[in-house]
Design a protein around this nucleic acid. Structure first.
Lengths: 233, 233
DNA sequence: CTGTAATTCAATCAATCGATTGATTTATAG
DNA sequence: CTATAAATCAATCGATTGATTGAATTACAG
């Protein structure tokens, strides 16, 4: 039976996710991974077969189900009402940035591994597209379609790109953004402020009425206020 | 005298820029670089000292002056007239995407090296910030200030982030975007179409009047038509 | 031409890489 | 307990890494 605790296996996955995402495949040795996991070098071959197979398993782990509740908000079901859809968009933006707070978070690992695959695609490329990008892109298009009902598919794709670009820019270039603007992205308030800017910019970019945008943001701020208040109690 | 042709040195720089940007520092060996340059391994030590020093020299080369006329449009001087400033913004967007056409282009190298430094900063981080990011960010803020005169500095920084995010998203995630949307980013027409989408989205995001945006894009299309016509002759 | 500095070359260095072995320890079933 | 399988371990494999040597070659001034 292979029904043991699997401590070593999961520890190797965890340490490899952290190291691979931070420094890339080639820069991380299997001894370093094993040490960080408190395991023996040979355990990598035993549990995964090879360094490459460990990397593929790590990517699959990060891009898997865990992620839809972590790095990206699920947008498969979105209300038809534009007002509610706008709230959903704002929450999506907040959600996408909020998980940046702890350094070395799951979001950071996910984003970093994605970028590294975009820079130099490996065998993991397809699995990222299938399991993460397509579902999220479809969800975002579904959401944007509620806000811009007369937009066709190519235009919705462009709009989704503009939204994702603003998010990923902050996720990826965090060190540059912090240096360039003198902001602290580990500060929840500054992070939320940035999310609300993207919300306003995006709702305007979609071509929505100013009154609609004003009310949406106003409503979102109240929701955040409630959320903060609830967490304080 | 050190006033020789310097063929080997520049060949090493060129090959290392390509290889480092495509596959990262750790994944590229000095033998591979020397072979691609048609040089001996020891020539790296002779001309640069070490592999790391070669990398630093390569980054400095890419981020240098060459770049302001290549990867990024110079925005240090922008007309005050909003109409002209809008044209400048559209040309900036076009310029930022147009150089993506040839695979392995200078823009691709510049973007890739930037991202790798954002993912895992090295000694080259500061030089990128000083020589490339700060000047470009200042230029973009200068330009956006003409279009949104009442915006304060932090807001302009946020707006610049939204613009840069949309550009970098396409630059970085090119393989993902092509797969996800079924587009071909080596096609100049599709690339310009994408630039014009970002232009419209951005001008709307800035909160400008629809008539102003319509005229700006209309005018830009005519400019592009003239440009194409001139190149055909 | 000769002499000197600049440059390139093949060969080799110790260190580290991923992978693998066989022995050992641990867990589980009968 | 014993027996069998699962898991971990220290030790080592050949290959490759970046770095370095000293000889050979080239370029150029006098």
């Amino acid at each position: 039976m292979s029904e043991t605790s699997g401590q070593t296996r999961s520890a190797l996955l965890k340490s490899s996710i952290t190291l691979f995402s931070q420094r890339g495949y080639a820069d991380v040795g299997i001894r370093e991974i094993a040490d960080a996991a408190g395991a023996n070098i040979a355990s990598i071959k035993y549990h995964f077969g090879s360094k490459k197979d460990l990397y593929l398993a790590a990517v699959a782990e990060v891009m898997g189900r865990n992620n839809s509740e972590n790095a990206w908000k699920d947008l498969s079901e979105v209300p038809d009402d534009p007002r509610l859809a706008a709230q959903e968009l704002i929450q999506f933006l907040r959600h996408s940035l909020k998980h940046l707070i702890p350094p070395g978070s799951s979001v950071e690992s996910c984003s970093s591994l994605m970028i590294r695959e975009a820079l130099h695609p490996s065998e993991a490329f397809d699995s990222i597209v299938e399991n993460l990008l397509i579902p999220n892109n479809e969800g975002l298009i579904n959401l944007l379609g509620k806000l811009v009902p007369d937009a066709d598919r190519p235009h919705l794709n462009n709009l989704a790109g503009s939204v994702m670009g603003q998010i990923m820019h902050i996720r990826i270039f965090r060190p540059f953004v912090e240096r360039l603007r003198g902001v602290d992205l580990s500060n929840p308030d500054q992070l939320d402020q940035m999310a609300m800017h993207i919300a306003q910019f995006t709702l305007r970019g979609l071509g929505l009425k100013e009154i609609f945008i004003f009310e949406a943001i106003q409503s979102a701020r109240e929701t955040e206020a409630q959320f903060v208040q609830e967490n304080k109690s």
